[in-house]
Amino acid sequence: MSSSVEAITVLSSDGDEFKITVSAAKLSKPLNWMLEDVCFSDDCDEVPTIEVNSKTLVKVIEYCEKHAPRANSGASDSDAEELKKWDIEFMKMDVKDILFHILMAANYLHMEGLYDLACQTAADLMKGMTVSQIRKIFHIKNDFSSEEQEQLRRQHPGCSFD
């Protein structure tokens, strides 16, 4: 692998170009493979496309760049503390617009850390919420009939629906 390559260019599904550093790309297996392909091939004209939209890819790359130093070298506990706080701030995002896409992107890009973080964030959003509040947060339509609804109420006596 050529050590001169410090960053690669990728395309989002919307066709926008993004730069991602080599060390950051190593957080994702598919990106890492792409990286190796790019570095080993002689003609670097072809820019690989990542099936993630631009808005999401910005966030994914932001996450990668932040976490890359620690992932590659290991870090002290105080760094880990700081990173945790950063993660919490980072995940403050709209559920429908970004969080869903981050979940799918992290899953698709095999990014364990981000996937875990995003799943936990989604789960935390539901804690203490009623059924209809959860539907609202996650933009889900109630597709139960009124009879089924009644049955659910009996099955889950502890649930608050409204």
Binding site: A123, M126, M129, V131, F144, Q155, H156, G158, F161
Partner: peptide, 17 residues
């Protein structure tokens, strides 16, 4: 996501859709 929920929220999630 849903496997991470505490029991009470898990019950609510089961009633979402």
């Amino acid at each position: 996501i849903l496997a991470r929920l505490p029991a009470e929220s898990f019950a609510s999630a089961a009633c979402v859709s």
